[in-house]
């Protein structure tokens, strides 16, 4: 099954939310260590708000780990070695 994601790019990587999987529980918002998450105008699978991030996101992946529905995917940018 295809899930359509909404990707936000940040300095450290990208954050993708899949509204078809997000049930709007808000657990991720409260576990974010830099408090960069908030409710979105885009609704999730149950018609409740999904989530979005601000540019403060550090791509740590905590929200992905604590999401009971696997609705968040974090991709970290690879470090460029000089």
């Amino acid at each position: 099954m295809e899930f359509a994601g909404r990707t936000t790019d940040t300095e450290k990587g990208s954050f993708t939310i899949f509204p078809q999987l997000c049930k709007g529980c808000g657990l991720c918002i409260k576990r974010c260590p830099v408090d960069c998450m908030s409710w979105s105008d885009v609704l999730g699978v149950y018609g409740t708000p999904s989530v979005e991030i601000s540019q403060k996101c550090t791509s740590c992946g905590t929200c992905q780990t604590v999401c009971p529905d696997s609705a968040i995917t974090i991709v970290r940018k690879k470090k460029v070695m000089h």
Binding site: M1, F3, G5, F18, Q20, L21, K23, G24, C25, G26, L27, V45, Y46, T48, Q64, P68, D69, S70, A71, T73
Partner: peptide, 19 residues
């Protein structure tokens, strides 16, 4: 979405309550 390989993606979102 990042799901374990042994999950069935076609039954997601799963049937449990939000949270």
């Amino acid at each position: 979405p990042v799901m374990p390989k042994c999950w069935r993606a076609d039954t997601k979102p799963h049937k449990f309550c939000p949270g």
